[in-house]
Simulated assay, not measured.
Amino acid sequence: MPLPDAVAAARRAGFDAVECHFPYDTPPADLAAAGLPVISLNTPPGDRAAGEFGLAAVPGRIAAARAGIAQAVDYAVAAGAGAVHVMAGYSQGAAGAEDTFRANLAHACDLAAPQGLTVLIEPLNPHDAPGYHLASLDHALSIIAAVGRANLRLMYDCYHIARIHGDVGAAFARTRDVVGHVQFAGVPDRGEPDTGTVDYRTLLPALRWHGPFGAEYRPRGGDTLAGLGWLGAFRALA
């Protein structure tokens, strides 16, 4: 669906808000008018055909990374979004990647703060994203401490954390103070959250997280609406 139509469908299905990965082909005013609050969006991924998936930790791409950060902040403000996820990219082990990432994050936070925006970083598991620069909670925590900006927070994706660290609840307990947003999906296939090895009906209330939960998954049957049978039961957990 065109993005505004997808947002309207999410509203009819019973969601309270949306997240958008890369909404840039849609005018931000159209997204803002689509009927649901926008929680967050991602910085542009770079050249997907060349294998890029984020630029902020890629040495040699600083100018492009910062242009993307500025674009994301401007779009978030115009669309009424609350946060920007700054994507690190595939640069694990590259010389200068960590310094590049930290400098770009500091820049992003300083650009976002006057607009009241949160900057998010997200560890991606190496099964799905081999070579992604940010691949563990400990790494994310060290970056947040080193950058030292109050608006830099952790995107806590339960699916990725389960694949990286196993115990989602224990990992959340030790990172709660820096969490800015929570996402979930079935483990290990990233399908609907009502089946798999993580019992979200028990886990989500136990987290005692009072912000939104983002359902970031891939419908097993390929039809989003047909797979929403879980939504009513999960809403009743709130």
Rank of each mutant, 00 (worst) to 15 (best):
M1P: 05
P2N: 14
P2W: 07
P2M: 08
L3T: 11
V7K: 00
A10D: 09
F15K: 08
A17M: 06
V18F: 03
V18P: 02
E19I: 06
C20P: 04
C20K: 01
H21Q: 11
H21D: 13
P23Q: 08
P23F: 06
Y24K: 03
D25Y: 01
P27S: 08
P27K: 02
P28I: 03
D30E: 14
D30R: 05
L31T: 04
L31K: 03
L31Q: 00
A34I: 02
G35S: 10
L36F: 09
S40K: 00
S40Y: 11
L41F: 02
P44Q: 09
D47H: 09
R48G: 01
R48E: 12
A49I: 09
A50E: 12
G51Q: 10
E52S: 08
V58W: 06
G60F: 13
A63V: 13
A63E: 15
A64F: 04
A65M: 08
R66H: 01
A67Q: 05
A67M: 05
G68I: 09
G68W: 07
A70V: 12
V73W: 01
D74R: 13
D74I: 04
A78Q: 15
A78I: 05
A78D: 13
A79P: 03
A79I: 11
G80C: 05
G82K: 14
A83D: 02
H85M: 14
V86A: 09
V86T: 12
Y90A: 12
G93T: 09
A94P: 00
A95G: 13
G96S: 14
E98M: 14
T100E: 12
F101E: 06
R102G: 08
A103E: 15
L105C: 02
A106M: 01
H107C: 05
A108R: 02
C109N: 05
D110N: 07
L111S: 00
P114H: 02
L120C: 02
E122Y: 03
P123A: 13
P123V: 05
L124R: 14
P130E: 11
H133W: 15
L137H: 03
L137G: 06
L137S: 01
L137R: 03
D138L: 11
H139Q: 15
H139G: 00
A140F: 01
L141F: 03
A145R: 07
A145L: 08
A146T: 12
A150P: 00
A150T: 04
N151W: 02
M155V: 02
D157N: 06
I161D: 00
I161W: 02
A162C: 10
G166E: 09
D167R: 09
D167V: 11
A170D: 14
F172W: 15
F172T: 01
R174N: 04
R174D: 10
R176W: 10
V179T: 05
F184A: 05
A185T: 01
G186I: 15
G186E: 15
V187D: 00
P188L: 14
P188W: 11
R190K: 12
G191V: 08
G196S: 12
V198T: 07
D199W: 04
T202G: 15
T202C: 14
T202H: 14
L203C: 08
P205M: 07
A206Q: 10
A206K: 06
W209Q: 10
H210M: 05
G211E: 10
G211W: 03
F213Y: 15
E216H: 02
P219S: 04
G222W: 11
T224M: 15
G229Q: 11
G229S: 13
G232F: 04
A233E: 15
R235P: 06
A236F: 07
L237A: 05
